[in-house]
């Protein structure tokens, strides 16, 4: 990873990337869908040795962007340069530069864990002996050795995902493109994945491009994160930098027992600033105001009506909301996963 003095280079450079999916004419039972700009002029720069995240709700264009970076989807316009290679002109080079973990495991489902890793290594150009060694190493690293003989199909969702991660990590690529790698995994497996990724970065300067909509994960593992919404990058910085940009506001969540005591004037005043979801109020307030609000709701009549409250510093989700991204639940759109 670059320090102030060590020069790094862009592992991934994306300029003005555009992909529009054509409109779909209505058929019986399905309404017409207008043309969608899945990526709308995206510019990105990922440094070598960085763990860079793409964060955004479903349909934000993350997977489309990733498919363009991996040579799977041809952009309508724009440039994609990966490790010095122009992938718009030579999409076939992507396979020789990066390892991609997609969301689906259909290609590997009926193989055993060991054979999935070994076959993938062989198809990355390794000789049989080297592929077997690499397979054994990666399975041991991820704690999959006891499952090596089991078909992926018979494993739980998290274990299957872990086996797919093993297939992605085998064969030493300088860039890893991982589309929601830890979906469904237990904390133990998650930790194994991030330890394996970190080791590759420390030992070989591997760059990681990570798609996620898990905010907690984004905050803990990413060096930098780009927040995507409707095919555009609406912010890009370190998680800390993004959170600082939201300002010093803190989030106060109040859960009322039965109903909010809005007959109390101060509580009614809070209601005006709150996002109300059933019994739950979410407020974003300056620390001073938050403190006053906590005092208010933890005394007297208001406290009697209060079930629970929580005071938190901004998360990336707050950043996302503050930047104008679609809030959780708005328009029926899914927000970012919080836990």
């Amino acid at each position: 990873m670059g320090s102030e003095t060590t020069p790094t280079r862009a592992a991934v450079r994306v300029e003005d990337l555009v992909k529009t999916y054509p409109s779909v004419r209505s058929k019986r039972g399905t309404p017409a869908a207008p043309a969608v700009r899945a990526t709308d002029g995206i510019c990105l720069r990922v440094h070598q040795g960085e763990i860079f995240g793409l964060l955004g709700p479903n349909g934000a264009g993350k997977s489309t962007l990733v498919r363009q970076l991996t040579g799977l989807l041809r952009p309508d316009a724009g440039e994609v340069e990966v490790l010095g290679h122009d992938l718009v002109r030579h999409p076939e080079r992507a396979a020789r530069l990066l390892a991609y973990l997609g969301q689906e495991s259909t290609a590997l489902d009926e193989l055993t864990v060991g054979l999935a890793a070994e076959t993938t290594a062989r198809l990355r150009g390794m000789e049989t002996a080297a592929a077997r060694t690499a397979r054994d190493e990666v399975l041991a690293e991820l704690g999959l050795t006891p499952l090596a003989g089991r078909p992926l199909k018979k494993l739980s969702g998290g274990q299957r995902r872990l086996a797919c991660v093993a297939a992605a990590l085998v064969g030493d690529r300088p860039l890893l493109v991982l589309d929601e790698p830890t979906t469904g995994m237990d904390p133990h497996a998650r930790r194994a994945v991030w330890a394996a990724v970190d080791r590759r970065r420390a030992e070989r300067g591997v760059t990681v491009l990570l798609v996620t909509h898990n905010v907690i994960e984004a905050e803990t593992v990413l060096d930098r994160v780009a927040v995507l919404d409707r095919g555009r990058v609406i912010a890009c910085d370190t998680p800390g930098g993004l959170k600082a940009a939201v300002g010093d506001e803190v989030r106060l969540e109040l859960v009322w027992r039965d109903r909010a005591p809005v007959e109390i004037p101060d509580v009614a005043a809070l209601a005006a600033a709150a996002v109300v979801t059933g019994r739950r109020w979410t407020l974003r307030l300056p620390p001073e105001a938050a403190r006053e609000a906590v005092t208010l709701v933890t005394t007297g009549e208001a406290f009697a009506a209060l079930d629970d409250f929580r005071l938190a510093t901004p998360s990336l989700e707050d950043v996302y909301v503050a930047l104008g991204g679609r809030a959780v639940g708005a328009d029926g759109v899914e927000g970012l996963v919080k836990a």
Binding site: R67, G71, L72, A95, A107, L108, L123, G125
Partner: peptide
């Protein structure tokens, strides 16, 4: 099922 992506991103 998107399984072709697996092969398509291997050389």
């Amino acid at each position: 099922g998107g399984g072709l992506d697996h092969y398509a991103t291997l050389p």
